[in-house]
Design a binder for these strands. Structure first.
Lengths: 210, 210
DNA sequence: AAATTCTGTTTCCAATAGTGAATTCATCGA
DNA sequence: TCGATGAATTCACTATTGGAAACAGAATTT
């Protein structure tokens, strides 16, 4: 057995991949998706720009679509490629977890500048971290350094008005209902500028392995 | 058009996907991988069973490989498809991006049951998709099927009161300020139960390559 | 029931992907 | 400078895909 075959096998095993070419279930999968959405071949044709006939042939594994065709498919149907390759059903990630947090019932973490209330903290393995924050700080000086953490953050002002200081931009005034999305490894800090303490809702991405 | 198709479309738009077929950077990517492993076209040919000439043309974007060809490729090279599609390593971290959305200034996507307002849609590559939704539906019957999409979702009621139907649980009543986190591939649907249409803020994880 | 419409399949042909051989390109070494 | 040698590209040809139109079956309408 040639050396590179060994390596090939090693790589395959390492990547947890099946040793031979799959029978290309792509057709079945496409049909499944199509039917699940109550689409006709004509509908899909409209969306993707591929001819009805072509789609029929793909579904019946009579042709192997060109990669551009596959692209049109995933674009037009608004699905992701992994989704298209996912073995028909069965995959069943669907654990159907959920975690309810009633108003004010989160986990409170007071600090001099902020008062955080962690939401949905029953759930351990989640990809986002939502929390409500009462912004106590009234001046940027109250922060000894930038707040900074890996990932991205989304934030909406629920009540009051705040000033958002960021490392690379001019301060930004945000009123109730305004929202912002930013890379949270860029230094940032919030300050209330309204009469009362402002309240904001934040959601951070979890700093998992990229 | 079924309700869940709308949301699917909304998510597609939100995820910053370009509306047309990309110029297929697959060639560059393949070459990159090949060179990184010090493989010659002949080597890759051995491993994949594709002709040298074919590989050359793929690398130079002169042809769009058949899907079977792509399969041979990922099998022979022991790589994953997402890996092959990943844009050639550009995403340097800490870019300090940000995207402000003023109250009501998001991208509106009305549907019979929901009226979505996509927030922060200037930013293309982000890991979360935030949007505000006015819940029009008054009865569960208005949904032709479950709304369902990969990933996880966090949701907080901003105004009004809603009932959250989920595939595996009893319906749940959520008042202003209440929030919930759940696996969004579990079927779900929202219904207003207050006088006015309820408004909720949602954040979905991006269904990226698993 | 006949006609019409809608959906999926099949047929045929033009366009294009895949292949082996020939050609060009690049790097050595004498 | 001039072959060698190995690698990538191009060429000529075959096989396959993709699309328009014809076809067949089912569902609706008249």
């Amino acid at each position: 057995m040639p050396a590179n075959t060994d390596q090939q096998a090693a790589l395959r095993i390492a990547s947890g991949r099946k040793p031979f070419v799959e029978p290309l279930r792509l057709g079945e999968r496409l049909k499944e998706i199509r039917l699940a959405n109550h689409w006709t071949l004509e509908d899909v044709s409209q969306r993707t720009g591929l001819a009805r006939s072509t789609l029929s042939k793909i579904e019946n594994n009579q042709i192997s679509p060109t990669f551009t065709a596959v692209q049109k498919l995933i674009n037009g149907l608004g699905i992701d490629l992994p989704q298209l390759l996912t073995p028909p059903r069965v995959q069943a990630r669907t654990m159907g977890r959920r975690d309810l947090t009633r108003q004010g019932e989160g986990q409170h973490h007071p600090t001099p500048t902020y008062e955080h209330e962690l939401l949905s903290c029953e759930l351990a393995q989640k990809r986002m971290i939502p929390f409500k924050t009462i912004v106590r700080a009234r001046s940027f000086d109250e922060f000894s350094e930038w707040v900074r953490h890996d990932g991205e953050e989304f934030l909406m002002v629920l009540t009051g008005e705040i000033q958002l200081y960021t490392e690379f931009y001019e301060p930004l005034q945000l009123a109730q209902g305004d929202s912002i999305y930013f890379d949270s490894d860029m230094g940032h800090a919030l300050v209330s500028v309204s009469e009362e303490d402002a309240v904001v809702l934040s959601v951070c991405t979890r700093g998992d392995a990229a």
